[in-house]
Design a protein around this nucleic acid. Sequence first.
RNA 1: GCGGCGGUGGCGCAAUCGGCUGACGCGGUGCCCUCAAAAGGCACUGUCCUUCGGGACGUGUGGGUUCGAGUCCCACCCGCCGCACCA
Length: 830
Amino acid sequence: MDERRYEPKQIEPKWQEIWAREGTWEVSNDPENTDHREKSYVLEMLPYPSGEPHIGHLKNYALGDAIAHFHRRIGRRVLHPMGYDAFGLPAENNAIKTGVHPRVATDRSIAAYRHWFHRWGISIDWSRELGTHEPSYYRWTQWIFLKLFERDLAYRKTAAVNWCPNDQTVLANEQVIDGRCERCGHLVEVRQLEQWFFRITDYADRLLEDLGTIDWPEHVKAMQRNWIGRSEGAEVVFGCEELGIDYPVFTTRPDTLFGATFFVMAPEHPDVFRLAEGTEHEREVHEYVNRALTETPEQRGAVDKPKTGVPLGRTVANPVNGEQIPMFVADYVLMEYGTGAIMAVPAHDQRDYDFAVAFDLPIRQVVAAQGADGQDGQDGAFSAHTENEVLINSEAFSGMNAVEGQQAIVEWLDREGKGHFSVNYKLRDWLVSRQRYWGCPIPIVYCDSCGMVPVPEEQLPVELPNIEDYQPQGRSPLAAAEDWVNVACPNCHGPAKRETDTMDTFVDSSWYYLRYCDARNDHAAWDRRVLRRWMPVDQYIGGVEHAILHLMYSRFFVKALADMELLDVQEPFQALFTQGMILGPDGNKMSSSKGNVIAPSDIIERFGADAARCYVLFIGPPDQDAAWATTGIEGVHRRLLGRLWRLADELADRGGGKPTNAEEPVDPEGDALTIVRKAHWAIDKVTRDMATRFAFNTALSAIIELINEIYRYPHADPQARRFAAGTAASLLFPFAPHLGAEAYEMLTGRRVWEEPWPDADPERLQTETFELVCQVNGKVRDRVNAPTGAARDELERLCLESRGVQAHLNGQEIAKVIVVPDKLVNVVVR
RNA sequence: GCGGCGGUGGCGCAAUCGGCUGACGCGGUGCCCUCAAAAGGCACUGUCCUUCGGGACGUGUGGGUUCGAGUCCCACCCGCCGCACCA
């Protein structure tokens, strides 16, 4: 007798082959609009293909796949596509090192990813597969660029930009973390360069407001709000009479204007040298600025660093009272924020206060708590205005409530032409050009006579040429491809040159979810009507590391494209789920240098795809980080999958003339009823966990409980056990599709994915008795069986009669009895 | 400093609307099956006390509301994440 046991290697390929051959998960765009099922667009963030997928990918796609399967089974038409974010630096850096063309390396990785997605059994509509590096895709990336260019949302300007000397390219603000390149960790330099930008700042308010319309985790919304950094205040003009130049500053506290006792400029401010010229401080200013500019952002930004600065030898006039106040240059003022210059109010701002103390400058309090005698110094610098703050030392405005005073001061400034209400943002325009090869070419041509000319749509794509030398030299490697660079001007047909920068890869991934909807459209990026059938993405799933970059850029794209009437939604991702990381067994982030990497390929080899998928979901709440434990996957393999398989094997109808079935027995009794009830309980539990929250860990534990219950009654009616096992297989299918399909087929002869999601029968969720919790003064003293739905006084009687309660009453006086029907009775004694 | 999220057995965690704390899994202990092992099955497993009936305690700390608090309120401690000289 050969032993029969759960062998994923025999089960998994069988189903993968069927799904691949039949294209089971493909879904039509339904141009006739005949399919009236509710749509569901389930999407995981597309992978950057590098080597082989890692365990985080497995979790990401296991999560999305469970949702996709669940939605299909509850009767929705589900779009669940896959693609690859295939342009990018790692493949190019690899090419520099090894000479292997980035396309070759990328396509090799893509093949590996595709292979593994099949072996994981992810239910993907493969007919929509795409790679952002394919001309059939980036043709439309270029088209979108041109659309943005037409609307002046893509533009070129010279600006101080972040330059990574290691990667030899510029970076977006969002790609600079603590002054370092987010990719290679090298210190970033600031350079004045002419670059391409997308005008995302035009959308700052809408990006902020519409966060209220989407179902995203609070922390992601908070990060976006933070990044947009909207603050309301006023722009106030300080004039330097000696040079006849006006300097506007931004302030959120215009009510403190009368307390401004000096004025500070950032070292990067373009007028600093000009102001100092000819004054006794000229040399000192040069030295200070040069020193400040060579400091690393970490050094300069150190929180407890003492305030430094140098006088400029000039004064500006405070617009509210004409007072001449001295100007300084100091590195605590940032060129990137506001106007690069500030009015300093040491009485009400900690930083200004610190500077004033260091340079012995006057401190004048202008806001005080009402009734107080004005001794609170610099307190309240950042605190919001309270109702009882009043202005003092503020001429005509003295005595006014601070909130009203602020309003009045700005209105007065506005009338005088010296200021106005203003809103400031931390968000900058998105720098999109990169001096690198492996990216989407920018479809622009420079002509000596016509200037900057967009490549006509019908000439797209501008294909990336093959080159020999990928080494960046401060300009794009494409600049060396002369055959490609030199081109006839589309306008005058004279000699012209192509733009040699490529686009940030975040441009590619900002619209891929739109292309999936109509992935094989050769005539357009998409058909607007098809988009209407699918967009927005109903459930987006990915890592929190994209909270700002990818997710903000995509939102900007959708809003801009909606404004062009190219699509009909305002937000790309209606709901977002951010998964936690799988950490190494040592609790640290997995990395090859720590030697704690768990390779999915090893895991699947040992335990199969179903066990791997279930384990990454069972390990804990899916939005939390969790450490990998090999004993954990063994548990899932044994207690969940192995035991279900054995049940199916034991209970399967093996012919015998009867049709196989796992129908619910009609009138189960005794143990059979207990098992049937547990099955309905599990249906209800799993359904609620999936539909109302992402509690896959508890859904799986409910399925384990059901399986345990079937084991507990080995001699119960086989039909009841078969029904329960079939239910377990059906419920397990979204998590472990191979075993779910296999066990279901063994028990019923049918394909589980063609079956509707089971319904919990409310009658079966009800029991005729329940365990009544009997408390005395809130402590549990007994539990007794009571009829479900019993009257309050009946429950009270049962409780009072119970042995445990009797023992604790000791003849004490009963003050009160609390009855919670079908749950508990609490006897309060004195 | 600002914003967000957490703190429950030896471990991961569960308790969904204020009602039995610790579901489920891991780990541990004992037993069954076996010539033996593997595999598998069954049972027990928060701490302390116990006359073995049971009892006391227990959800970061301290207070409060309540018949009843892991859950609500106040104050605080600790940890993680994001932002941060943002005017």
